[in-house]
Design a protein around this nucleic acid. Sequence first.
DNA 1: GCCCAGATGCGAGCAGCTCGCAAGTAACCC
DNA 2: GGGTTACTTGCGAGCTGCTCGCATCTGGGC
Lengths: 141, 141
Amino acid sequence: MSPEHHDAEVLIRTLREQGQRVTTGRRAIAEVVATNPDLSAEEIVGFVQRDHPEVHPSTVYRTLETLEEAGLVRHVHLGHGPARWQLADDPSHRLVCEGCGAVQLVPRVRFDDVRGQVEAEFGFAIAFGHFAMTGRCAACR
Amino acid sequence: MSPEHHDAEVLIRTLREQGQRVTTGRRAIAEVVATNPDLSAEEIVGFVQRDHPEVHPSTVYRTLETLEEAGLVRHVHLGHGPARWQLADDPSHRLVCEGCGAVQLVPRVRFDDVRGQVEAEFGFAIAFGHFAMTGRCAACR
DNA sequence: GCCCAGATGCGAGCAGCTCGCAAGTAACCC
DNA sequence: GGGTTACTTGCGAGCTGCTCGCATCTGGGC
């Protein structure tokens, strides 16, 4: 069994444990998000509808919201355009180049020092994960 | 003459020097942006229309784009919701609390070290100004 | 004043969601 | 397996925040 499938199973099991119902659509959406990080809701709709064409876009939006409230997935804004969805325990932050659009993954732990400094200096705990940091990659500078 | 009015004058003069035409609407929009940082386009429309009700919202959007291309103003995304507009030489970055919505201004220079570290370590020059950093303020933690 | 490239008012259109409602169904109980 | 019911879904309308095409108008060089 692939690790992604395992992730999806965990999502579904946790949903059920929280008293939520498990439906075909929710299974399919969990599987797609666990397998493909950083898809937009519309892209998730595309993947899901290949196997389950009856699943409506609004169901995808609502399910993503449910999964997010359950603490299982989260959305991140990579610059302009639609939000992107990933597992809540995804260990990376994103740096988005405004020149070429390239997305650089950086382990979250690499920002612990930075966060600590800002927190000590300004009393503010930055959650780097929700809005990606934008700027210029090495190639575009 | 107020310093904000002086800022607006500089915007208008620079526009003209770049071969752009100066119109009543553009004057009014420059004045509002120079006087009130972090307004949304819709809010700018409101301010402008108090004195010049004939100025159309689409003119405000187009003028802001023109001023941004001229390097005179910039927009920043403070979390969800509309973009906010400020002078390009505004010396502060914004930290937005996801708990209470409070916006904390921090001098840009305070991020020079952080930017240098990330650049040295990952080769990526972060432009903190375009998407505000979100997180939790001291009160909400 | 005259002229015309550039700016504007206006309305239609678009992306990315969000919501209300009636119909469908998962999960609990027997 | 079947009944019950509250939760979930498909569907479509609606909303925010812009963006664009087009006909009209006007700033600024002459």
